[in-house]
Design a protein around this nucleic acid. Structure first.
Lengths: 347, 347
DNA sequence: ACACTTCTTGGGAGCGCTCCCAACCCTACG
DNA sequence: CGTAGGGTTGGGAGCGCTCCCAAGAAGTGT
């Protein structure tokens, strides 16, 4: 074995596999890449040679000759700290990883929290070091998506930047999630239902508000604008919004917060004001994060299928890449995954 | 610009840069790789051409020609869940990232929690898809380190597998950390000092126990073996060990737990038994994790410089890789970073 | 002025693979 | 029996780069 290794000068090459199988290089390549234009007999011979030699294709050579990299990037415009802190990302990574598990595709995790990293990243992508890009947690004014589109780089975005998103996207059903939350309040007899919104320049936050409005209107409730308090997804913002709400409509009996973290802020203020949850005011959040489960009382929340979003994003991207190289184009799938209301004690 | 791009058929190549600068391909290559054997004048011309053309070297071609990949792997033998849950890993990643920041080196994060992933990983590494490997959180019986050594793959391990670690390693000073904890107890008048150990087949856990023993002996205290309770780094294990300790030596007045999580378990049991912390029993943990800061009372703990460990590991690995390709070898650095006692209310 | 160095430089060879064309085989059909 | 057409096959060309050798330029000592 050692001798053979020395003789062949290291790892076996395609050429060696071909020689061993008694075929030409081209044929061996065809077998390894699963081309159908090979006879069964030849295929077997090559496969045997591959097994005996323990052949593994040289990635660099493949990339160079085939003008691809077999790698995709998951671009996260956050610092390491946030990346590790938010369970959202770990779920996405898990989903993406699952979708890629039996693929040759390699996942590159690229965090770009500061400007320096973002510049490096842009260079990376323009240099075509990956075959495609998964974009998560994109801010509305991020130039990256447009850059990618311009470059013709296959990309998939989680969520959307706006209603007319041009990139293929995978989103959860924010509208229906919000509506379900409000309907749940209504079915339990709540009548003065307020909402605390996220930053409305984030499309998802807008949709949650739309869902709230729709549900309120459908139920024939009073669509009082004073029941809508804008915030910014932060705990402090949630608290502030809740205070406004209480000042404007002290008779509020239910609050739908567009994130669990904001719900936590709201809870704090409600407690301070002497109101009991859910007896006096019912509360629902969004995300179904760890925060929701550990809140006191446990928070009813709208769950997004984040891991599945990761899985779907990856498979959409793989398709995009395949289509692109086949010349096909212009499909731009937009996938919306269902959300689910997880009922706990707060409502 | 667009016309030029079309004419050159895509991204500029080295050849094009060379032509533009009026030099040969070899010379251009030398400039780009920072070889000193180039005249200042030529260097400038090439650098100008690079800037004008926006040249970025093709990684695949480099890898193929140079027989390297410019990538290293951080191998974590854990599932995504644990990887994201433990702040340890995020600190390591941050440190490694910092050390690699102004390098061309790319970091590949490879989680290998289950057997399937481990097999894929082994294949990956044998196929020389990376220039080097960083190993963290290695279990004592993991075959990977030996495999890597056999392959001659540059590697650095965090911690050690045993006293006679053969791989280059970066560890924190577990011995001194433990000793400092116990000395702190002693300086505050504690006399019946117990310890809850981690899994003793983990070298670091063994060293912490050694440090405890040494400190106890140096102080001339009674080295009662009943004051040593083995556990497994888990919260439940810490609780169990604490119960044993209390049963054997109800007069214990200080406990050094070899991890914060075990300290949390111990705290629980101490409370149940009606003992106050630190009044009746003082408590110290290890890791200085978030758990320590948020415990009630805040836990005194031995801090390991984890981010720095990551940084050092990366730079040691880069050196190993450089040495390897220069033919130099056999240095096997073993670096031990100092730990630090962070005193809070529990002691 | 001549023989040597030392410094620079150009470009051939080759890394391992995919793409693709031409050659080959066999079968089917007129 | 000749030929067209389909299925297979071999291997040349070339991807963009690094390595390295040989050759030219410039400088040194005698």
């Amino acid at each position: 074995m050692a001798a053979a290794r020395v003789r062949s000068g290291g790892r076996p090459t395609l050429e060696e596999v071909a020689a061993r199988a008694g075929v030409g290089r081209g044929t061996a390549s065809r077998v390894i890449n699963g081309s159908p234009r090979v006879s069964a007999q030849t295929r077997e011979a090559v496969e045997a040679a591959v097994a005996e030699l323990g052949y593994v294709p040289n990635r660099a050579a493949r990339a160079l000759a085939g003008n691809r990299t077999d790698a995709i990037a998951l671009v996260v415009p956050e610092s390491e700290t946030r990346f590790f802190a938010e369970p959202y990302f770990s779920d996405i990574v898990r989903g993406v990883g699952a979708a890629l598990a039996d693929t040759e595709m390699q996942l590159l995790l690229t965090l770009a929290g500061n400007d320096r990293e973002r510049r490096r990243l842009a260079q990376y992508l323009t240099a075509h070091r990956v075959d495609g890009v998964l974009l998560v947690s994109v801010h509305a004014d991020d130039p990256l998506p447009d850059l990618l589109e311009q470059l013709g780089m296959p990309s998939v975005i989680s969520g959307r930047r706006h209603a007319a998103e041009t990139l293929p996207s995978v989103d959860s059903d924010n509208f229906e999630g919000a509506r379900a939350a409000v309907d749940h309040f209504i079915s339990r007899g709540r009548r003065t239902i307020a909402t605390i919104t996220g930053r409305l320049d984030v499309y998802g936050a807008q949709r949650r508000l739309d869902g709230y409005r729709k549900a309120v209107a459908s139920a024939g409730l009073d669509p009082d604008e004073r029941l809508i308090a804008p915030a910014d997804f932060s705990e402090e913002g949630g608290a502030r919004a809740m205070r406004e709400l209480l000042a404007r409509r002290p008779d509020v009996d239910a609050v739908f917060a567009a994130s669990d973290v904001m719900a936590a802020g709201a809870r704090h203020v409600l407690r301070e004001s002497g109101r009991r949850i859910p007896d006096d005011v019912a509360l629902i959040g969004f995300d179904d994060s760890a925060v929701a489960r550990h809140m006191d009382p446990p928070l009813t929340s709208v769950r997004q299928p984040i891991e599945e979003m990761g899985r779907v994003m990856a498979s959409v991207l793989l398709q995009e890449i395949a289509h692109r190289s086949e010349g096909r184009t212009e499909e731009r799938p937009r996938i919306v995954l269902p959300t689910e209301l997880v009922v706990r004690e707060s409502s």
